[in-house]
Write a protein that binds this DNA or RNA. Structure first.
Lengths: 268, 268
DNA sequence: CGGTCTTTTGAACGCGGTCAACAGCCGTGG
DNA sequence: CCACGGCTGTTGACCGCGTTCAAAAGACCG
């Protein structure tokens, strides 16, 4: 897999989606020593619009940027945090791909959410309790770390931040409710179709193609998220392919008939 | 069903749980005209410990009480709010029983949560967006209405309220994550067992019996919540009964072997 | 190049859904 | 009082979806 951390993230996404390569030379950043990499400012960040600070003024951005200075880099399969660990920060995914999951006492794993660039993780621990999920990088990933305490202090100076945080928690609740509907009311083929369309939409809001993308997670992870066995996911992807709805090759997906997929889940 | 609204709520719960009757004469409140019922103060409320204001000082309680003056009473099957309606308040269930559910565009219903006394509903709309769920009373129910705007104003005077609100949203997230695990990883018998044990625990935290209670919702509602058909729920309740795990008669449940139920869901 | 992990595909089984009939319960009205 | 219709819950019989087990092919990595 050609995961490229940090600066090269947008081009990594584009390449893997068979798009134009914006900054081909940036691949050299892979070789850059950690400390030598230049610190990106929030203002210059490609994710400005998607971040917590989306609608901040220039002055507010400055204050926010101080909080978000710490970046953490993770290799694939590395944990960002684990259930039970004390929670002091929330994290914005700058590049790469993550999953959040709950592991039950008898060892069953339930993936609760996939996080792509611009997504937050760690919100569940905003109130100071220890983490109740695991967060794992599915490929090389970089996150901005934002300490809760400092963020709370900033709300005193930036009034609308409070509201923004409520919005973000609400979005999280909303997303989980949709996952509940998916698991509670849909059949396997509907779940897989809905999953692919949703993933496409999320890529679209980041400026990438909604119909052509790479599945960064394993079939087992998709299955866990959808409440299905990995074999079922694999079978359905194959079936969708012979039905002409999409084409799959390993992890790359090309949706050919999004109307058809929508029809599968009962929406015109 | 002997649903008793308003003041008689605690005794209604106790009676249905075959417990001591605290205020037997309060049953007469059923006949009281609406306007004549005395306004209960937050200080005297039986739910003090469970409410938003749990750890407020006397002065703070006074301020909070002003917000929560409006009560709304609902008959069974009546909506508190509907998807798409503007959201201005959150609600604390004072007595009775409610469900929150999402209805998909093709008419399928997913119950996302049951609310009993002391529970909140409407948190999902804290950030000012319209409601994304329906909230329906499953029996005669009374709720305290707490306007968001006034609550936000109060956070300026009561610093720990902000934190309390984050706690409540976090609890909501946590509850939904557990529902996800239930739907994603458990088999039908595990789901029903987990549901009954959870319901028992929630009654216990309110001071009622964890092993003897009344199901206020229909089998169809239980099924929707658990991602099962109502027939499956019914069959499993019957099977648990012949296995000696519990006894059911209509809506009353008596858990005889909670260890056995726990074992079913893979916990010793 | 061998070893490990992931993915695909096949074959068979069983859980839970579906359809249907019936019982119980309750409020309504004759 | 019973008759009635509507609604909820129970139970049976059957079937199909998704799981399970297994084998082999493919992808990745030292």
């Amino acid at each position: 897999m050609n995961a490229v951390p940090g600066l090269a993230a947008p081009s990594a996404q584009l390449r893997s989606a068979a798009h134009v390569v914006l900054f081909p030379t940036l691949d050299r950043s892979r070789a850059l020593p950690r400390a030598a990499r230049p610190q990106i400012s929030c203002n210059a960040c490609a994710l400005r619009g998607a971040c917590i600070s989306a609608d901040f003024s220039a002055a507010e951005m400055g204050a926010f940027e101080e909080l978000a200075q710490v970046k953490r880099r993770l290799r694939g399969a590395q944990h960002l945090y684990r259930t039970g660990e004390p929670a002091e920060s929330l994290y914005v995914v700058r590049s790469g791909f993550m999953k959040s999951s709950v592991v039950t006492s008898d060892g069953r794993e339930q993936v609760t959410r996939f996080h792509m660039m611009g997504d937050l993780t760690g919100l569940g621990a905003m109130a100071g309790q220890p983490h109740t999920t695991d967060a794992v990088a599915l490929e090389d990933t970089e996150v901005c770390e934002i300490p809760f305490a400092a963020l709370q202090r900033l709300t005193l100076r930036v009034p609308q931040l409070q509201h923004r945080l409520y919005c973000l928690m609400t979005q999280e609740l909303q997303a989980q409710r949709e996952a509940l509907v998916l698991l509670g009311t849909m059949r396997a083929e509907e779940r897989v179709a809905a999953f692919l369309l949703d993933l496409g939409q999320r890529y679209r809001t980041l400026g990438f193609s909604a119909s052509r993308f790479v599945l960064r997670m394993s079939r087992a992870d998709i299955g866990s998220y959808l409440g299905l066995r990995l074999e079922t996911v694999s079978r359905l992807l194959s079936r969708f392919q012979v039905e002409g709805l999409l084409s799959v090759e390993g992890k790359s997906v090309h949706i050919l008939d999004s109307e058809g997929l929508l029809a599968l889940i009962g929406q015109s």
